[in-house]
Structure formats: C-alpha cells, structure tokens
Design a protein around this nucleic acid. Structure first.
Length: 151
DNA sequence: GCCAACGTTGGC
DNA sequence: GCCAACGTTGGC
C-alpha cells in the first residue's frame, strides 16, 4: 500500500464535493501531465491512501484523506469532442490519459495549511514542497504520519 | 494580478 | 536533439 497526494482546485471540485458524491466516491480525472499520468497509470493501486490537497484557493493545503477504490482506466474526457480536454491524438484503443476512482475517508476539521507544512523541517523533502506543480505525487510513510500529526 | 518555475511545442 | 517561444500552474 502506498501514499499519494492529489491536487485539486476546490472551486472546481473539492473535498466537499467528494463528501456529497454518491457513496462519497468520485472519478479523479482530467489529469493532463505526463509525470502525473505515469503515476496514476503505473503505480496507484486500489487501497492506496491519498491526501486531498486544495490549490488556487483561499485555504491552500491538505483537506483530508481518501482511498483509491478503482485502479487506472482511460479517462473518458479525452474521447469527448465537446470536452475542453478532448485529445485529438487519443483513441479508445490507444488512450493517453488515465483516471482512478477514490472514496472519501476523512475530511479534516481544518485544512492543514501549506504554510505549516513548509514550516515543518521534517517535511522539507515532500514533493509538495520541492516540486510545486505536480498534481499526483508520492508521499512517504514517514511524511504521511507527520502530516496527520498536524491535524 | 504578478511572476517564478516548469512543461510543451515546433522549427531547424 | 537543441532551444526559443509560448502556455500552465499555483503561491502570494
């Protein structure tokens, strides 16, 4: 079992939307970055635990925990011509982009601020701190436990 | 809204 | 394969 951090813009789809979804389960889709895609497609497994991170919003930080309940499958949005992220180079037989399904496990009472994570010396090696712009990123077991202590 | 950092595209 | 130009991310 591995740990991950998934980013989202809560104005588009945040942890509250996940909480309201049927069975508190939703497709994690619209990833259009190769590094993130490779993690989703090749390494994210059913049962893996995921931090839900809110970006580009008032309260930037980690909002809660979810669990992967379905492994990688082709992201349907790439095949829909009307979709903003339609990919003309993708075909059902040769998908380029993948998604997974996740279910909410815990919504933190308060978002753990990015500021606080950056201020925690033991978390200085988190990908979140080192590489700001990756939307699917691995989290070590030690980092996972440390972040949970900041709740 | 600014802008740094990073990713992608495309000519050569 | 290089690299300039351009686009996107995302904190502040």
């Amino acid at each position: 079992m591995q740990y991950w951090l998934f980013k989202t813009e809560p104005d588009v789809f945040g942890i509250d939307d996940l909480a309201r979804a049927p069975d508190q389960t939703a497709r994690w889709d619209e990833i259009r970055n190769y590094q993130a895609r490779n993690f989703l497609r090749d390494e994210v497994r059913v049962g893996d635990q995921v931090f839900i991170y809110h970006s580009s919003c008032k309260q930037v930080g980690i909002a809660g925990v979810a669990e992967v309940v379905r492994g990688a499958y082709p992201d349907p949005s790439q095949f829909e011509p009307s979709h903003a992220l339609f990919d003309v180079k993708a075909a059902p037989g040769s998908p380029r982009w993948f998604c997974v399904d996740i279910r909410l496990r815990e919504c933190f009472s308060q978002v753990i601020p990015l500021r606080q994570i950056k201020a925690t010396a033991a978390l200085a090696d988190m990908t979140l701190v080192r590489q700001g712009r990756l939307s699917v990123q691995p989290v070590s077991a030690a980092q996972w436990q440390l972040v949970l202590k900041l709740r």
